[in-house]
Simulated scan of single mutants.
Amino acid sequence: MTSTESRGRSRAPGTRQGYAVLDVETTGLDPYRDRVIQVAIRQIAADGTAESDWETLVNPGAGVDPGPVEVHGLTSADLAGAPLFRDVAPAIAQRLAGRVFVAHNAPFDWAFVAVESDRAGVRLEVLEWLCTMRFAKALALEVPDKSLATIAAYYAVEQLKAHDAGDDTRVAAEILLRELADADRVGLMLPLVECNTSRDRLKRTLRRWFSRVRRPLH
């Protein structure tokens, strides 16, 4: 993937409709084998105005282990009555459409949402993502690490419930606004990254296929 160059919020390509800040909780770390169990999206206009908040639990499917409950706190019982990803995929696509996809560690969240949407047969109309972690590096923030908690503390954003998609999305959105303001102040090009090209979609399709072929029989 290649970075696109932009300067400030008003000049960033693709930000005409603003940003969609997203966070997911998952059953594991591999988007081709693991599943999304919670997703939250906060829409922000190009001028920084908050537009909407949305979140849902997601049932990963019958018999699927919820993964590290000690991290995200979600048990099979919590997820049993939740919709499947395919049931919420159209709503997710609508909230992302035409916006810059934003997340803290965006490659991780984008991979899960993109692969899950592919499984559901729903195409995401997203062209670029912006990672608040990489943004912090581009701004050369003087912090010991670039974790969400550390960057939140740097910008005095209160984190209420770590590893909850709703709260993590709120925190990431607040961080984004502060990073955008800092970028405007110093004249920094936004570290936007092109995503979801036809080549990217083909790669995801092939990896999904190979993942199914290589999955061990039980």
Rank of each mutant, 00 (worst) to 15 (best):
Ser3Gln: 14
Thr4Phe: 13
Glu5Phe: 03
Gly8His: 02
Ser10Gly: 07
Ser10Glu: 14
Arg11Ala: 14
Arg11Phe: 04
Pro13Gln: 09
Gly14Phe: 05
Gln17Lys: 08
Tyr19Glu: 03
Ala20Thr: 08
Ala20Met: 04
Ala20Trp: 00
Val21Lys: 01
Leu22His: 05
Val24Ala: 01
Val24Phe: 00
Val24Trp: 00
Gly28Pro: 11
Leu29Thr: 15
Tyr32Trp: 09
Asp34Ser: 13
Asp34Asn: 14
Val36Thr: 15
Gln38Asp: 14
Val39Asn: 03
Val39Arg: 02
Ala40Tyr: 06
Ile41Met: 07
Ala45Arg: 08
Ala46Thr: 10
Glu51Gln: 14
Asp53Arg: 10
Trp54Lys: 07
Trp54Gly: 09
Glu55Val: 05
Leu57Trp: 11
Val58Arg: 04
Pro60Leu: 10
Gly61Cys: 13
Gly63Cys: 08
Gly63Trp: 09
Gly63Lys: 09
Val64Gly: 04
Val64Pro: 00
Asp65Thr: 13
Asp65Phe: 08
Gly67Cys: 08
Pro68Asp: 13
Pro68Ile: 06
Glu70His: 12
Gly73Arg: 04
Leu74Thr: 05
Leu74Glu: 02
Leu74Cys: 05
Thr75Tyr: 14
Ser76Val: 11
Ser76Arg: 15
Ala77Cys: 00
Asp78Lys: 02
Gly81Arg: 06
Gly81Phe: 04
Ala82Ser: 12
Pro83Ile: 02
Leu84Glu: 12
Phe85Tyr: 15
Asp87His: 15
Val88Trp: 01
Val88Ser: 01
Ala89Ser: 11
Ala89Asp: 05
Ala89Thr: 04
Pro90Phe: 05
Pro90Lys: 07
Ile92Cys: 07
Ile92Met: 07
Ile92Val: 15
Gln94Tyr: 05
Arg95Met: 06
Leu96Val: 07
Gly98Ser: 03
Gly98Ile: 00
Arg99Pro: 01
Asp109Ser: 08
Ala111Val: 03
Glu116Cys: 05
Ala120Asn: 05
Ala120Ile: 00
Ala120Asp: 08
Val122Glu: 09
Val122Phe: 06
Arg123Met: 10
Leu124Thr: 08
Glu125Asp: 15
Glu125Ser: 13
Leu130Met: 04
Thr132Gly: 07
Met133Asn: 10
Arg134Pro: 02
Phe135Ile: 01
Ala138Asn: 13
Glu142Asp: 15
Val143Leu: 05
Val143Gln: 03
Val143Cys: 07
Asp145His: 10
Lys146Asn: 13
Lys146His: 12
Ser147Val: 01
Thr150Ser: 09
Ile151Glu: 01
Ala153Thr: 05
Ala156Tyr: 05
Ala162Lys: 10
His163Pro: 15
His163Cys: 11
Asp164Cys: 04
Asp164Tyr: 00
Asp164Lys: 01
Ala165Phe: 03
Ala165Cys: 06
Asp167Arg: 01
Asp168Cys: 09
Arg170Asn: 05
Ala172Trp: 04
Ile175Lys: 00
Ile175Asn: 02
Leu177Ala: 12
Glu179Asp: 09
Ala181Lys: 13
Ala183Phe: 01
Asp184Thr: 06
Pro191Thr: 03
Glu194Trp: 02
Glu194Leu: 08
Cys195Ser: 09
Cys195Ile: 12
Cys195Thr: 11
Thr197Pro: 04
Arg199Thr: 06
Arg199Pro: 00
Asp200Ala: 10
Arg201Trp: 02
Leu202Asn: 10
Lys203Pro: 01
Lys203Cys: 04
Arg204Met: 10
Trp209Val: 06
Trp209Pro: 00
Ser211Glu: 14
Val213Met: 09
Val213Tyr: 11
Pro216Thr: 14
